[in-house]
Design a protein around this nucleic acid. Structure first.
Ligand SMILES: [Mn+2]
Ligand SMILES: [Mn+2]
Ligand SMILES: [Mn+2]
Ligand SMILES: [Mn+2]
Lengths: 224, 224
DNA sequence: TATGCTTTTTAGGCTAATCTAAATAATCTA
DNA sequence: TAGATTATTTAGATTAGCCTAAAAAGCATA
């Protein structure tokens, strides 16, 4: 029942980043890893880690790395909830394209209001996933996600559904659009090139395309 | 066609405040006036005025006061546009009550995006006024407002329509609800008490209520 | 117009979030 | 396992936005 600590926007961004890098709290995260992700300097990260430690959302082991705490995980999930619900709003209600919403949701996720996000959730009809296929945590921070694997690791000739993207940068999403790869498409690996790990893919039992390893490692599919 | 300066959230709040206090750019605004409005210290205001001066959104005359510049006025109107459109969204789409939206809109007005606000405007059906009856500036910062007067100054026995509120604090708006005073109501001053300037008001040709001078000075009506 | 009150600015400090440069700890490798 | 290399932290600055206390400017009025 302990109240959640209140964080600044910068602290929220760091915590969310730590949550993602730790694979949802499973792994130790490094200072340089965070710095690379947030696009800041390691020295700035160290400063911030001390603040987050003080607020008890992370366990910080000097020179070793950080773990997200139980309450930190909940705080992170509630920020992610806001981020993803706003993304749904932007795409479903305002007509934004899926490659345009990241930047705006990055700001909207920090709006503070007890009621706002739950009313937004209701208004949107309690969506389960955001425009990138990522699951939306509920009010209690509980997230239900189906098992998914990287397209790069999909067994050859096995059908799978394009469920979500790992990378949400405009340049990647626009490239997927150009390739004709959309969330929900049925995909099958027809051929795998051992030299460069590029793949030949069939989309919806129809057209076939070639994609590089880089692309295949940013697409998540659910088997069968 | 000079580009508009980019302001921090704090700078935006100050500029909007100066716009309001100056009556839309007509009057010189004082340091203490701003401090009282923003709930900060005069010394902090002086610091901020220097920053706003540097960004050319105000003309600052030391020890005299500040005027908003042409570009400052446009910037302020675009912030006000965002504030009011978000308020409409919160009330019309999410079901908030008119006394709950100020605080949230105060945050949402600072979200940066070239497209967001125009898409929101479209989604909302290009509303003309916000939930407090205040007119919404268009993309170019142009505002069309009908002539309105304080209920406190309305001629006795003359019908007028309740158009907007000057004060948007929850406590005032809740009191109006309790009194049965809603935007759009027809009001008529039946009696005016010269001692304390309280008024007897008839609402929609029906019930009559007594209101204090303080209330009457925060209600705007359009005659006829 | 001198004097005192009010308003405003200045001076100096604080915190949050960033940075660069230097120091130190951890890890890799020969 | 001793260096070398890499990762991380510390030290010391900077900027934005705020503060208090003190100085200075403006004004009111007798
Ligand atoms: Mn963010
Ligand atoms: Mn997303
Ligand atoms: Mn604001
Ligand atoms: Mn309003």
């Amino acid at each position: 029942m302990g109240n959640l600590p209140s964080l600044t926007s910068a602290e929220e961004n760091y915590l969310k980043c730590i949550y993602h890098l730790s694979g949802g709290g499973k792994m130790l995260v490094s200072t340089n890893g965070i710095a690379a992700e947030i696009q800041t300097k390691p020295a700035s990260v160290t400063d911030m880690l001390k603040k987050l430690q003080k607020k008890q959302v992370i366990d910080y082991y000097k020179y070793k790395g950080v773990n997200i705490t139980r309450s930190g995980k909940l705080v992170a999930l509630l920020i992610i909830r806001k981020h993803r619900l706003w993304e749904v709003f932007l795409v479903e209600k305002l007509g934004f394209h899926w490659d345009e919403v990241e930047e705006i949701a990055e700001q909207l996720e920090h709006i503070r209001s007890i009621n706002l996000i739950n009313k937004l959730d209701h208004f949107l009809g309690y969506p389960r996933v955001d425009p990138h296929g990522d699951p939306i945590p509920n009010e209690d921070g509980i997230i239900e996600s189906k098992p998914k694997i990287l397209l790069a690791k999909l067994t050859q000739d096995k059908e799978a559904r394009f469920i979500s993207v790992k990378n949400t940068s405009p340049i990647f999403l626009q490239y997927l659009d150009k390739l004709g790869l959309h969330l929900g498409s049925d995909l099958k690996v027809l051929d795998r090139n051992e030299f460069d790990h590029s793949l030949q893919i069939m989309i919806n039992q129809g057209s076939t395309i070639f994609i590089s390893r880089d692309v295949a490692e940013n697409i998540l599919v659910s088997e069968q």
